[in-house]
Measured scan of single mutants.
Amino acid sequence: MATGGRRGAAAAPLLVAVAALLLGAAGHLYPGEVCPGMDIRNNLTRLHELENCSVIEGHLQILLMFKTRPEDFRDLSFPKLIMITDYLLLFRVYGLESLKDLFPNLTVIRGSRLFFNYALVIFEMVHLKELGLYNLMNITRGSVRIEKNNELCYLATIDWSRILDSVEDNYIVLNKDDNEECGDICPGTAKGKTNCPATVINGQFVERCWTHSHCQKVCPTICKSHGCTAEGLCCHSECLGNCSQPDDPTKCVACRNFYLDGRCVETCPPPYYHFQDWRCVNFSFCQDLHHKCKNSRRQGCHQYVIHNNKCIPECPSGYTMNSSNLLCTPCLGPCPKVCHLLEGEKTIDSVTSAQELRGCTVINGSLIINIRGGNNLAAELEANLGLIEEISGYLKIRRSYALVSLSFFRKLRLIRGETLEIGNYSFYALDNQNLRQLWDWSKHNLTITQGKLFFHYNPKLCLSEIHKMEEVSGTKGRQERNDIALKTNGDQASCENELLKFSYIRTSFDKI
């Protein structure tokens, strides 16, 4: 039985969820670079991206490699990797027998973001014989899940209580170790020597080791999670996991709180800001991140802002960003909400898709409305799209047979046209069989910064309504002859009103 693990408890099935942008060198404390989270699957090609990484700022997932063999891993080693800020997950990587050479110096898994409450997941690794993470000293947050690894031993010899604050939620089941077939031998045991430290858990006094050649490092209890030197002297209180010299914040392997210019500090002093819960960055760093993602459509890219001495992905609820200094300031009234469309555009074809934009005031991208039916549609669209004030790209209304009016965009005031449909149009209306009105132009103002209007096959939309939009939106004169079809717009509506004058002759039985 794995020490510190839980057996036999019912657990939810383990679901495996399925960018080499360097964020800056980590400095003297770390020998390499800070790398983003990685999802490495199918083959070993991307694994080489770990070569210079000291910190993975995010998670590391290595999974679904069915053609790899043990010899493929023999020359692979990433000794610079010290810390993973989120979680480490391995799933069905064939041929991998140990992690001792792959990650010989991995010391800390912070667990800032977890995989279903777990910071370390080893699942269905069919050839893994031992973990071998002999320098792993601290899992700051989260638990361990090690399950269905039929060859995995050296679990009962690990004292997880020396690595985690609590072992109650560890789930370590259905491994070879369960069948008591392992016969784990710690260093020196074969020669009758006791080389590794022994600890007591559940009444068992057991030597602690990761492999037959690597003991588990056990520091004096007084050192807590700070770690200790090879001689057993406690590291500085700002260290986490390990250090090369005692009581020196510049000799830590990793930091308990924050890293700044080669030393570990309790908090980031001005003019620095907390970033990702582990390091200090200056304003320029946060500003660069903001600008890199301002026009990016890459998933996970955030326009970072500053709030409460932190550089964070977005302002919290009730705050909006001051564009001059990136500071989050309290909103006066309802907060603006910028919604970034991942692929640059979004099609609204149902109430469900409209709900995804609920509360958005600025759309960074283009909207395509293609709704053919739905219950209580006008009210639903207004509830979900009615706060949109600005669209950076274009607005396209296409084959939306259920629409009679666009009044559900009740606050839309600006279409920038930074991206144009077919390279020309910022407003595009095609084949809307029941569209009769755009907006009530006596109450609604709309500016279209650039781009043209396109109207074709809107049989109940009168040309007068379209011409009014040209005047109000500032697009009059931009359109070419064929942009607004004269014969297919309003051709099934009563669009022309003329005053009919009647004269009559009164007659009676005795007068003409």
Rank of each mutant, 00 (worst) to 15 (best):
256 R>E: 05
237 S>N: 13
280 C>K: 01
70 P>E: 03
280 C>R: 00
327 L>T: 07
331 C>W: 15
60 L>V: 07
297 R>A: 12
93 V>H: 12
250 T>I: 04
62 I>V: 14
131 L>V: 10
324 S>P: 15
260 L>W: 04
85 T>I: 05
158 I>H: 07
232 G>R: 04
110 R>C: 08
106 L>G: 00
190 A>N: 10
80 K>T: 06
29 L>Q: 03
87 Y>I: 00
70 P>Y: 05
158 I>C: 03
107 T>G: 02
210 W>Q: 08
75 D>Q: 10
116 F>T: 07
267 T>S: 04
98 S>R: 02
105 N>E: 04
95 G>P: 00
147 E>R: 01
81 L>F: 01
146 I>N: 01
61 Q>T: 13
334 P>K: 15
212 H>P: 11
68 T>Y: 15
70 P>Q: 11
291 H>V: 14
261 D>V: 10
222 I>W: 15
72 D>F: 05
227 G>L: 04
42 N>H: 09
268 C>E: 00
276 Q>F: 12
57 E>A: 07
165 D>M: 06
107 T>S: 11
170 N>Q: 05
299 Q>E: 12
61 Q>A: 03
97 E>W: 09
40 I>K: 00
83 M>E: 12
306 I>T: 05
257 N>I: 01
131 L>K: 00
196 C>M: 03
301 C>N: 02
263 R>Y: 07
191 K>M: 12
294 K>N: 02
184 D>N: 08
173 V>G: 02
217 K>L: 11
118 Y>F: 10
233 L>E: 13
75 D>L: 09
60 L>D: 01
254 A>K: 03
218 V>L: 12
48 H>Q: 15
94 Y>A: 08
311 C>K: 02
147 E>S: 13
238 E>A: 12
194 T>F: 14
264 C>V: 00
245 Q>V: 10
310 K>Y: 07
330 P>N: 09
266 E>V: 12
288 D>A: 12
263 R>L: 11
44 L>V: 12
335 C>G: 05
293 C>D: 03
293 C>S: 02
237 S>C: 09
165 D>I: 06
124 E>I: 00
283 F>M: 08
261 D>S: 10
59 H>N: 08
184 D>P: 04
245 Q>M: 08
229 T>W: 06
114 L>N: 04
263 R>Q: 11
73 F>K: 04
153 C>E: 02
88 L>Q: 00
199 T>K: 08
153 C>S: 15
181 E>N: 10
287 Q>A: 15
112 S>I: 15
163 I>R: 03
134 Y>G: 13
85 T>E: 03
307 H>I: 07
198 A>W: 10
68 T>L: 09
45 T>E: 15
177 D>N: 14
105 N>V: 04
331 C>L: 04
144 V>G: 02
264 C>S: 01
204 Q>L: 09
251 K>W: 02
31 P>K: 08
326 L>N: 13
314 E>S: 06
89 L>I: 10
85 T>H: 04
289 L>A: 09
333 G>C: 04
141 R>V: 07
245 Q>K: 08
231 E>L: 07
295 N>K: 14
49 E>N: 08
63 L>P: 00
182 C>I: 05
139 I>F: 03
161 S>F: 11
288 D>G: 10
293 C>Q: 01
313 P>W: 14
116 F>S: 12
188 G>N: 04
225 S>H: 12
86 D>N: 10
286 C>M: 00
132 G>S: 14
99 L>P: 01
208 R>Q: 15
132 G>M: 01
175 N>F: 13
130 E>S: 08
175 N>H: 15
62 I>S: 00
211 T>A: 15
94 Y>I: 10
41 R>H: 01
99 L>G: 02
59 H>S: 08
247 D>L: 07
136 L>R: 01
295 N>V: 03
186 C>T: 11
68 T>N: 02
134 Y>P: 07
190 A>H: 12
183 G>K: 10
61 Q>E: 08
146 I>L: 14
259 Y>M: 12
178 D>N: 14
283 F>G: 04
283 F>I: 13
259 Y>R: 03
318 G>V: 03
158 I>R: 07
175 N>T: 13
29 L>P: 07
170 N>S: 07
47 L>S: 05
216 Q>P: 02
60 L>M: 05
117 N>S: 08
236 H>Y: 03
228 C>Y: 03
169 D>F: 09
298 R>Y: 13
67 K>Q: 02
128 L>S: 01
85 T>Y: 02
28 H>C: 12
187 P>I: 10
127 H>K: 03
226 H>I: 08
44 L>Y: 08
262 G>L: 02
196 C>Y: 03
282 N>S: 15
43 N>C: 01
214 H>K: 01
207 E>Q: 11
261 D>H: 15
56 I>F: 00
43 N>I: 04
317 S>M: 10
132 G>P: 01
185 I>T: 10
225 S>T: 10
204 Q>P: 14
229 T>E: 06
335 C>S: 06
208 R>P: 14
334 P>V: 15
273 Y>G: 02
267 T>Y: 15
205 F>A: 05
190 A>S: 09
306 I>W: 04
129 K>Q: 11
130 E>C: 02
257 N>T: 08
128 L>P: 01
